[in-house]
């Protein structure tokens, strides 16, 4: 299904190292418009580094990131900014600005990034808070007053506020109870559909994978070692995927863990 449409994102030979620690060693990956790709892989395999590199929060050492066939790291600063404006991210710990109220957090990109007038931005923010199931009275609260699950919802509202084309989710359900996890999974699916975005999600929560993914890619030792439609995940004979999906303690990955 991905092969019919020209890809929204194309990664070719992407590499990134921190000193001697090689994290990405040649990532090749295509993401079609409006598909929902989930990236799985063990802790510390560089999943976060990968999506931060795609968003230009980190600069790659080599390789390219094409967004609609434009090479992100060979564009002028202004053109790069124009592309990045269409990206958004829900960070692992929600990364809400703790000196601002909830509605100001949600409206932040609208006010400062898009220069929307404060009143209009507040209206949009309240609408988005409703979309993620938060009561309006929380609009004036501060992030410190919220539970982990609520923070994630605010982070989600902030991520969809600017109607982005591509949304990244970094471990959206980590640290939440199973019920709240499913609420977030449902919200991700419905919000992504509502804004018509392409979604790239990092997770090691298999319930989440089955809920969100249309396609799955597995990251291991700096490379994408397997990728296919979600339906193929349970039937593949790839031993790495099998071990990860079933959480086995024995398998190819056991002996390689540092």
């Amino acid at each position: 299904m991905a092969s019919q449409m020209p890809p929204r994102l194309t990664l070719r030979g992407l590499t990134k190292a921190f000193g001697k620690n090689v994290v990405l060693s040649g990532i090749d990956l295509d993401v079609a418009p409006r598909e929902s790709l989930v990236i799985i892989g063990g802790s510390g395999t560089g999943k976060s580094v990968l999506i931060k590199t795609i968003c230009a929060l980190l600069h790659p050492d080599g390789g390219s990131v094409l967004v609609d066939d434009q090479d992100l790291f060979r564009l002028s600063r202004g053109d790069q900014q124009d592309i990045l404006r269409r990206f958004s991210m829900l960070f692992q710990g929600a990364a809400l600005f703790d000196s601002l109220t909830i509605w100001e957090n949600v409206a932040f990109g609208l006010i400062y990034g898009q220069k929307m007038d404060r009143k209009a931005a507040r209206r949009v923010a309240l609408e988005k808070l409703q979309d993620v199931g938060l009561p309006e009275r929380l609009a004036e609260a501060y992030p410190a007053e919220l539970s982990g699950g609520m923070k994630k919802r605010v982070g989600l509202a902030r991520a969809i506020a600017g109607n982005p084309d591509v949304i990244f989710f970094d471990e959206p359900t980590t640290g939440l109870d199973p019920i709240m996890s499913n609420v977030i999974n449902d919200l991700i699916v419905s919000c992504v559909q509502k804004v018509g975005a392409t979604a790239i999600t990092i997770t090691h929560d298999m319930t989440s994978v089955r809920h969100i993914a249309s396609r799955v890619a597995m990251l291991h030792q700096g490379k994408v070692i397997w990728q296919d439609d979600i339906a193929a995940m349970d039937t593949t004979d790839n031993p790495y995927v099998q071990q990860f999906v079933h959480g086995l303690t024995t398998g190819p990955m056991t002996s390689e863990k540092p």
Partner: peptide, 16 residues
């Protein structure tokens, strides 16, 4: 604190 809780990354993602 803003750096380690990814708030600085979040600023950048919001075009600021």
């Amino acid at each position: 604190t803003m750096r380690v809780t990814e708030q600085i990354d979040a600023l950048q993602m919001l075009s600021t």
